[in-house]
């Protein structure tokens, strides 16, 4: 077997030779920063419209969405858990204790094995934020958002999304990342496939049920939201 480093040197040498005429190694950063980026970066919706769009998009994906306020969040979680008809839940390690409603069996993820998580019927996690334009929920897998495995194996995922963490466009999300995350999962609706005759089937390997609680932590700003909703639906019909 060849020593791998031989191929490394050879490939890099060939690549550098191939790009001799085009590369600008002296000032890669400035060449990069001059790339054309005239696409839409900033959103144009009001806060209320943005949240309404996020919810609309999530519902298009068949996600179950409820809205609540910060002070009623615990109750809203408990109601969702009860409505699910499930009893055994896994909780992300850093999940606030208040979110773990009584009357259910909770397994807190302190390095649970896959087999243990597999026995859970549902999972509750926080989220890094949301992107309204595509109805995407972002997980950076902090302690509150949980390890990747906990939001993957259980068939039912309840995700808490703060309105203040929802942006309108994908570029706005990237602008919010001060540092690139080490781990990131972007969820746009429950697991799905269209591999058989392009018929969209919900639920293959990931959770088949995605429930989202949108928490209004923006207070007054969201008071205009009913109005915002109407504007969006009017905009759609014209």
């Amino acid at each position: 077997m060849k020593v791998p480093s031989d191929s490394r040197a050879r490939i890099l040498q060939q690549v550098h030779a191939a790009t001799q005429k085009t590369e600008n190694p002296g000032d890669l950063a400035s060449t990069y920063s001059n790339l054309p980026r005239t696409y839409v970066r900033a959103g144009r919706l009001s806060v209320a419209e943005r949240i309404a769009l996020m919810i609309e998009r999530l519902r298009e994906y068949d996600a179950d969405v409820v809205e609540t306020t910060s002070d009623k969040l615990d109750l809203a979680i408990a109601a969702q858990l009860r409505a699910s008809g499930r009893h055994v839940f896994v909780a992300a390690e850093g999940l606030p204790a208040a979110w773990m409603a009584g009357g259910f069996e909770w397994k807190i993820d302190r390095n649970l094995s896959a087999a243990e998580i597999e026995t859970c019927e549902g999972v509750v996690t926080g989220s890094f934020g949301g992107i309204a334009d595509s109805g995407t929920i972002v997980l950076h897998h902090s302690a509150q958002e949980g390890r990747r495995i906990v939001s993957l194996l259980p068939d039912w995922h309840l995700c808490i999304l703060y309105a203040s963490r929802v942006v309108e466009t994908l570029p706005e999300y990237f602008a919010r990342c001060e540092q690139p995350p080490v781990l990131a999962t972007y969820i746009s609706g429950p697991s799905a496939t269209a591999d058989i005759e392009m018929t969209r089937i919900k639920g293959v390997h990931g959770p088949r049920f995605l429930n989202v609680i949108v928490v209004d932590d923006l207070g007054a700003e969201l008071n205009t939201r009913q109005q915002g909703k109407e504007e969006i639906s009017q905009g759609k019909s014209t």
């Binding site: 998009r57 994906y61 992107i131 334009d133 595509s134 109805g135 995407t136 897998h141 990747r148 994908l170 995350p181 080490v182 781990l183 990131a184 999962t185 972007y186 969820i187 746009s188 609706g189 429950p190 697991s191 799905a192 990931g206």
Partner: peptide
């Protein structure tokens, strides 16, 4: 608008 799942990871966590 976006595929259901996108994963990004760096090395080993």
């Amino acid at each position: 608008r976006m595929n259901p799942y996108t994963s990004v990871w760096s090395g080993v966590t």
